[in-house]
Simulated scan of single mutants.
Amino acid sequence: MEKLRVDIWSDIACPWCYVGKARFDKAVQQLEGTVQVEVRHRSFELDPHREPGDTAPVVDMLVKKYGMSPAQAQAGEYRLQDLAKAEGLEYQAEGRDHGNTFDLHRLLHLASERGIEAQVWKAFYAANFADEASIFERDRVIEVAVAAGLDKDEVLAVLDDPAAYRDAVRADQAEAAALGATGVPFFVVDQKYGVSGAQPAEVFAEVLEKAWGEKRPVITQIGGADDVEACGPDGCAV
Results as ranks from 00 to 15, higher is better:
Asn128Asp: 01
Asn128Pro: 00
Phe129Glu: 04
Ala130His: 10
Ala130Phe: 10
Asp131Leu: 12
Glu132Gln: 14
Glu132Ser: 13
Ala133Tyr: 10
Ala133Glu: 15
Ser134Phe: 11
Glu137Lys: 13
Glu137Ile: 11
Glu137Gln: 15
Arg138Trp: 01
Asp139Ser: 15
Asp139Ala: 14
Arg140Lys: 15
Arg140Leu: 06
Arg140Met: 12
Ile142His: 06
Ile142Thr: 12
Ile142Asp: 04
Val144Trp: 03
Ala145Thr: 11
Ala145Ser: 14
Ala145Cys: 09
Ala145Pro: 08
Val146Lys: 06
Val146Leu: 04
Ala148Val: 03
Gly149Asn: 13
Leu150Thr: 13
Asp151Tyr: 00
Asp151Glu: 09
Asp153Gln: 14
Asp153Ala: 14
Glu154His: 05
Glu154Cys: 02
Val155Cys: 11
Val155Asn: 01
Leu156Tyr: 09
Ala157Cys: 00
Val158Trp: 09
Leu159His: 12
Asp160Asn: 06
Asp160Gln: 02
Asp161Ala: 02
Pro162Thr: 08
Pro162Asp: 04
Ala163Pro: 00
Ala163Lys: 12
Ala163Val: 08
Tyr165Ile: 05
Arg166Met: 07
Arg166Trp: 09
Asp167Met: 15
Ala168Met: 11
Val169Asn: 05
Val169Phe: 07
Val169Asp: 04
Val169Glu: 01
Val169Met: 06
Val169Gly: 04
Arg170Met: 02
Arg170His: 09
Ala171Asp: 09
Asp172Tyr: 00
Gln173Lys: 06
Ala174Thr: 13
Ala174Lys: 13
Glu175Gly: 03
Ala176Glu: 13
Ala176Leu: 10
Leu179Ile: 04
Gly180Gln: 08
Gly180Arg: 08
Ala181His: 09
Gly183Ile: 08
Gly183Gln: 08
Val184Lys: 06
Pro185Lys: 15
Phe186Trp: 07
Phe186Arg: 03
Phe186Glu: 02
Phe186Asn: 01
Phe186Asp: 02
Phe187His: 04
Val188Pro: 00
Val188Cys: 00
Val188Asp: 00
Val188Phe: 03
Val188Asn: 07
Asp190Phe: 10
Asp190Leu: 07
Asp190Glu: 14
Asp190Val: 11
Gln191His: 15
Gln191Ile: 04
Lys192Met: 11
Tyr193Asp: 00
Gly194Phe: 05
Gly194His: 00
Gly194Pro: 04
Gly194Ser: 11
Val195Ala: 09
Ser196Met: 10
Ser196Ala: 12
Gly197Asp: 02
Ala198Pro: 03
Ala198Phe: 03
Ala198Tyr: 07
Gln199Cys: 09
Gln199Thr: 05
